[in-house]
Amino acid sequence: MRVHIKRFSLDDEIKQESVTYELEAKEQTLLAILQEIKSTQDSSLSFTSSCRSSVCGSCAMRVNGVEVLACAYKPKDGDVVEPLKNMPVIRDLVVDMDKALTCNTKAAAFSSKNSKNIALSPDDEKVNELQSDCILCGSCYSACPVYESNENFIGPFALTRSWRYVSDKREQDVDQKIEAIQKDGIWDCTLCNECVPVCPQGIAPKQDIMMLRSKSGVMGHIDPNMFGGGLDFGTPTF
């Protein structure tokens, strides 16, 4: 079996180049294959991994142009493996997530005021069960086309995280959260749906963004693109 891996190194000023590795075909994950290459064929191959059970979010990458977790994907002959998009590549399959992660803070995606304990019903808890399954792997961020026109876009995972807290009955400062996602946030999304199929946890950030838009509307915020002309928020929304 052959896999083609896009390699990149800042050290040698090598631009991205595809390197092909030959392996014995057997039933295993892409991560296991990368580890095998690294420990037996090429110790310079760089990637990140940790839990190997799809909960730590370290090994997101693209195979044939689609975001996957290497630990949850079983490769086929001829697969092309690349790093995530929209983040600086540090080396080979490793990207720098520092900037992407600041989106969580920008979106005020946290519990704002620690109130008294408020009882939740099983239904209350189910409201954001899926959103709180997020592992911050960055797949949705990589798949999002908005970054081509607005690099400051808060982006899918941080907006899902925002909805997680906004929808939480215990949250005491919904206003602050809704305020935080008006600029470079919910209205910049084109609702193209690219973030949805790539989520390894089955989360639908687009859906959460639509929920945030309707909540924003109820709270008196207006889609800036509706006025045309006066405000320029980058990509038009539909």
Binding site: L120, D124, D168, R170
Partner: peptide, 10 residues
């Protein structure tokens, strides 16, 4: 619970 951990409920 106060900082928002979504524990399962009875």
């Amino acid at each position: 619970d106060r900082i928002g951990v979504p524990f399962s409920r009875t």
